[in-house]
Design a protein around this nucleic acid. Structure first.
Lengths: 107, 107
DNA sequence: AATTTGCGAAACCAATTAGTTGCGTATATA
DNA sequence: TATATACGCAACTAATTGGTTTCGCAAATT
């Protein structure tokens, strides 16, 4: 099963769950109360998040607290890094210029 | 149709396309040559990327060059920002501690 | 001990999506 | 003008996904 961080954050409900548990670990029922959905649906989202290690479980009696593994979000940041160089140093403007010149030479 | 940046980068092929055109605008055919897939498949991915404005087209005769709209990636960075505070300032460790204390009080 | 509560897992369904095939159209080339 | 090339678009298929329902199990409550 293909499970990576990018696929996990693609779903808006999952992003909402991430935001919700970012400040406070919560049980599936508690999370479900915040949305117009069932506990089971939340449970499936939590499974996806757990599988890609964006979230970890902490059992406490019969309750399972879900906690955000914030560190895992660095993966996204790392991926963004290669493009940050481009947008920060405005290399893209340079690329545009080069492309325009190339087109004109063809004519 | 639900089209946002997060959904766009969820697909590994689309991330590969983004990487490919980041340094150099390319035509669908040129992009397709880099992958084990057809031009039409690439074309569909480019449509998704165009719809969420991660990519823009530049027609040149019968060729259409696809260019990365790097600025749009800032949207992802903005979203990450709220969590960056957490992982950088190690607030998560504090949260863990608070949660542990809470559990112990329950017992 | 019986019941309730919190949960995951499996079976199922509807919607979405990635990919293919087969068009039509516009630009370039012979 | 006829042909080849570059492309988007629509119809179709197979796989995936979000969600529901139902079940069983373990922990808590009565």
């Amino acid at each position: 099963m293909r499970r990576d961080v990018f696929q996990a954050i693609a779903d808006p409900t999952r992003r909402a769950i991430i935001l919700l548990i970012a400040s406070q670990a919560m049980t599936p029922n508690a999370i479900a109360e915040h949305f117009d959905t069932t506990r089971q649906a939340v449970s499936k989202h939590l499974r996806v998040l757990t599988e890609c290690e964006l979230v970890k479980q902490k059992q406490n009696g019969r309750e399972i607290y879900y906690e955000l593994e914030v560190k895992k979000m660095k993966d996204i940041d790392k991926w963004l890094d290669q493009y940050k160089k481009i947008w920060e140093n405005r290399f893209n403007q340079l690329d545009n210029l080069l492309l325009t010149i190339k087109k004109q030479n063809k004519k």
